[in-house]
């Protein structure tokens, strides 16, 4: 099997971020960086988009910024899981 890097679509990256945030609950950017395997710049770009879509929210606590999923974000992940399974049933990768 050739060593081929798996291409991650934009939606896949955003879902990876959302899943890390969901798993961690209220989390800091460093954990998301490792969990979603992204560079700091790219993560900031995606986090900005996720927040503008209302899927993730941020808040400051003791001078640190934390991120958490909104209800909309939770609903989106739930819906995405269904569509991911549907695509997977037909052998399609997202």
């Amino acid at each position: 099997m050739p060593n081929k890097a798996r291409y991650r679509s934009k939606i896949r990256i955003m879902v990876d971020i959302l899943r890390v945030v969901q798993k961690e609950g209220e989390t800091r950017v460093t954990k998301i960086l490792y969990g979603a395997n992204l560079s700091h710049d790219r993560l900031n770009k995606y986090l900005g988009e996720l927040m503008s879509r209302g899927l993730v929210t941020s808040f400051d606590q003791e001078g640190l910024t934390f991120y958490s999923l909104t209800d909309k974000g939770k609903r989106f992940l739930f819906e995405f899981r269904k569509f991911e399974r549907f695509a997977e049933a037909f052998g399609l990768e997202i």
């Binding site: 939606i11 995405f80 269904k82 569509f83 991911e84 695509a87 399609l92 990768e93």
Partner: peptide, 13 residues
């Protein structure tokens, strides 16, 4: 399939 396509954006859907 259409709902999945609108969310996921995979053309095969």
């Amino acid at each position: 399939s259409l709902k999945a396509y609108k969310t996921v954006g995979n053309k095969n859907l």
